[in-house]
């Protein structure tokens, strides 16, 4: 059973090239990516992840609202009793915010310059069973 990942853009941010490149790379790594599109609210993302029984949520933010929106997704997961779903993020996010987001329960943040393989390796390490490299 491949790892299932909901990829989303939350908030008012139309820059979706990055998230599509990552979605494509995760597909090529053998994962099932559910792309939900632009302008999602935290609630929409969490509902999608629950309906799709995804193990992971990947968020992309370039709007500067990451300190509001990413914790809102983590909180919404707690509210729905789904905190076992892992959250990671990517985008223009400064180092000090990354530390704070991780403290709040985000598994990892990939700032600009991160390699696609880094994201794949990170997921393989966290989900050794579902995310094994294709034979």
């Amino acid at each position: 059973m491949p790892l299932r990942i909901v990829m989303a853009k939350v908030g008012l941010d139309g820059h979706d090239r990055g998230v599509k490149v990552v979605a494509r790379a995760l597909r090529d790594a053998g994962f099932e990516v559910i792309y939900t599109g632009l302008r999602q609210t935290p609630e929409m993302v969490v509902d999608a992840a629950i309906q799709e029984d995804a193990q992971v949520i990947g968020l992309s933010l370039h709007s500067g609202a990451h300190m509001t929106l990413i914790p809102a997704v983590v909180d919404e997961l707690k509210r729905k009793g789904a905190e076992d779903i892992m959250v990671f993020g990517g985008g223009i996010i400064p180092e000090e915010d990354i530390v704070e987001l991780k403290r709040l329960g985000v598994a990892e943040i990939f700032p600009p310059g991160s390699g696609l393989q880094q994201i794949v390796d990170f997921l393989r390490e966290r989900f050794p069973e579902e995310a094994a490299a294709p034979a």
């Binding site: 491949p2 090529d28 099932e32 990516v33 792309y35 999608a48």
Partner: peptide, 16 residues
Amino acid sequence: TGGAVFGDRIRMQRHA
């Protein structure tokens, strides 16, 4: 690779 990208939810966002 067995991987996939599913985009059907995009067309159904209004029911999210």
